[in-house]
């Protein structure tokens, strides 16, 4: 045991101090790029004579934010988009995961439904937005549904793939231990699918913002996507820029939350624990 124990401690404690300084350097470089970018954004367009209705400078965009808070209920719009993104994401994830596990458990259904799923996956989901508005009217429901529809597929595909690639020997082992089908699912297949499920959720988190934006662009009367069309109508380019930035931040927030969840779920994988 002693020999193996030494091997074990050697592999787990892989020189953290060097990692730390490298990470600090990376962080400094990332911030430097941001500073460079904002500086260029502030000073280059005026130098080239580009007017503010084409490219507003950084400071003009920042000045626009309090105006939007006062005149356009910015916080309400952010909340509206965030709520729709989250609701659509959760709804799409739940349905996508449920269908993925369901099809994974039933090869017959999977074979029969595979071509239709592929067709639905290829169909441009954003094109459904006008349809949902015709069906459900000018409220929050269409954008939630478009978001859910977009999020649905990557999660379904990832979960289904994971179910199909579970090590068959692991299933044989569980069967040899006289486990029932449901036990095999909950004790082997479901946990084994976690890395794929969380990878699907990460893709879904980035797509959720697209879904919400499209829903709001097409027929919304609230949300950041609506502010984009509104700003466009007013030739208020700074407002469009701000809305895009805020939507991006929203997406980063959602993605960060999913990534944090993933680190918690997959704590047992060495490469995720250290990243």
């Amino acid at each position: 045991m002693s020999l193996e124990a030494i091997e074990h401690t050697e592999t787990t404690s892989s020189s953290p101090p060097r990692c730390e300084s490298a990470r600090l350097q990376d962080g400094a470089a990332i911030i430097a790029v941001a500073v460079l970018f904002v500086t260029a954004w502030q000073f280059v367009p005026p130098l080239l004579g580009i007017p503010r209705y084409i490219i507003p400078t950084f400071s003009q965009c920042m000045v626009e934010i309090p105006v939007m808070i006062a005149q356009d209920a910015l916080f309400t719009q952010i909340f509206s988009s965030a709520w729709a993104a989250l609701a659509g994401f959760v709804l799409g994830s739940l349905f996508g995961a449920a269908c993925g596990y369901g099809l994974g458990l039933s090869p017959l259904f999977e074979r029969v439904l595979a071509p239709y799923l592929l067709a639905l996956q290829i169909a441009p989901k954003v094109a459904f937005a006008p349809l949902f508005i015709m069906w459900f009217g000018y409220n929050d429901l269409p954008k939630v549904l478009v978001t859910a529809l977009i999020v649905f597929f990557p999660i379904l595909v990832n979960v289904l793939q994971a179910m199909k690639t579970v090590d068959p020997d692991l299933v044989r082992l569980a069967r040899a231990f006289s486990m029932r089908r449901a036990q095999i699912f909950w004790k082997v297949e479901f946990p084994a699918s976690m890395p794929s499920l969380t990878a699907g959720l990460r893709i879904g988190a980035t797509l959720a913002v697209i879904g919400v934006t499209v829903g709001e662009l097409v027929g919304g009367n609230s949300g950041l996507g609506y502010l984009i069309t509104y700003g466009e109508g007013q030739a208020d380019t700074a407002m469009v820029f701000d809305a895009i930035i805020l939507l991006t931040l929203l997406g980063i927030g959602l993605y960060g939350a999913v990534a944090a969840l993933e680190r918690r779920i997959l704590h047992y994988l060495p490469r995720i624990a250290h990243s």
Binding site: D169, L170, L173, F177, V188
Partner: peptide, 15 residues
């Protein structure tokens, strides 16, 4: 499958 028989493989199959 019989609880009197158990097997292990070349792969450890640890979860």
């Amino acid at each position: 499958p019989n609880p009197r028989v158990a097997f292990m493989l070349q792969k450890d199959l640890l979860l």
